[in-house]
């Protein structure tokens, strides 16, 4: 794995499969004045199912696959997003996790993707030993309602040491299908940092998979943001295949899922929780970014452990909207 470049792999997907197919994928590519390439996967572009799949798989540095499935939400079937991950520590912690925070225009831009693996951009990237071995290209991803500009690309370039001419930056807003899909695909991505926070060694996670219901999206970016996060904290289920002592799992089980929070938090739509934090992730307690359900499959002992539960009440509210109805 030390010879595998998540950035080169991601760039290969972009160059061989995406750039030649932008019309069918309903995305746009723009070369900025400083040479960086911004890929609009759903800021001004439409951003559909196909684009969402590519966004997620590029963000995972070629080590993850997304398939679409179906889940049951009480009386309704809904589409789902399934992720299958190889080398989870590299795929998620070093690449996919959205945690590289760059000061930008008085706030912060949160960057995810393989670019994080070049210098170990943040605490989760640095939690694993993998560093991208001398990539000639860098690939970054951002969830945003504004198309990234030269300034942001230059910040990323300075931070990773790859020139703008060799930088790809993917962008999508939350309120489109691609945006919703790529957030729902952050199921393993959400679970692993949570498990890391409780001291579990990342190199003991051998494989991972997860599924998230794709319940709702809307044009209103803040409502869309809340609903898609509901899909993760109330609906996603992650499987972590590990090799360890059972006690390393059982010792932290109760502390992992979102349901560990009390009723002032658990059962409240994320839209409301985020508003309480001034709509800033900087103010969101770490315990609020927790997965709905995790299953540990211990390859060493054959035992399986589970923690957390799906909350259909909140998901159904997201699905229907405030004034939705069944005729």
């Amino acid at each position: 794995m030390q010879q595998y470049s998540v950035n080169e792999a991601a760039a290969a997907i972009i160059e061989r499969q995406v750039l030649s197919d932008t019309e069918r994928l309903q995305i746009k590519a723009k070369r900025l004045a400083n040479g960086a390439t911004v890929l609009d996967f759903g800021v001004h572009s439409k951003g559909g199912f196909l684009a969402g799949k590519y966004f997620a798989e590029i963000g995972m540095g070629g080590l993850g696959r997304l398939t679409y499935g179906t889940m049951r939400l009480r009386d309704h079937l809904v589409p789902s997003v399934q992720i299958f991950v190889e080398a989870p520590a590299v795929c998620e912690m070093a690449s996919h996790v959205a945690f590289w925070k760059l000061p930008y225009r008085g706030g912060q831009a949160v960057i995810s993707g393989p670019v994080r693996a070049i210098r170990g951009a943040d605490q989760f990237a640095r939690a694993v030993g993998y560093r991208d071995p001398a990539p000639s290209k860098a690939v970054a991803c951002i969830q945003t309602g504004e198309l990234p500009d030269e300034e942001l690309c230059e910040l990323i370039s300075e931070g990773c040491g790859v020139s703008c001419e060799n930088l790809y930056l993917l962008a999508a807003r939350t309120g489109c299908m691609a945006g919703a899909v790529q957030v729902c695909a952050r199921n393993v991505e959400q679970s692993m940092p949570t498990v890391y926070d409780h001291g579990f060694p990342m190199d003991k996670i051998v494989e991972a998979s997860a599924v998230t219901p794709l319940v709702s999206m809307t044009d209103d970016e803040s409502v869309a943001y809340g609903r898609v996060n509901d899909c993760l904290i109330y609906g996603q289920e992650t499987n972590l295949y590990v090799r360890c002592d059972d006690k390393e799992i059982t010792g932290m089980l109760d502390q992992l899922p979102f349901s560990k929070n009390d009723s002032s938090v658990y059962g409240v739509p994320f839209y409301e929780l985020f508003a309480k934090c001034g709509n800033s992730w900087a103010n969101v307690p770490r315990d609020w970014d927790a997965p709905c359900k995790i299953n540990f499959i211990n390859l060493t002992t054959g035992h399986v452990f589970s923690t957390g539960q799906i909350c259909t009440d909140v998901l159904e509210r997201s699905f229907m909207g405030e004034r939705g109805m069944k005729l």
Binding site: D219, V223, M320, G321, R323, G324, L327
Partner: peptide, 25 residues
Amino acid sequence: RSALHSLPPCGEIRIHNLKTANTLI
């Protein structure tokens, strides 16, 4: 709502209105 009422039987059809953030089934 009016469009859905005029449909022949077609299983379950849900329309998610991106403008209002509501779902009609």
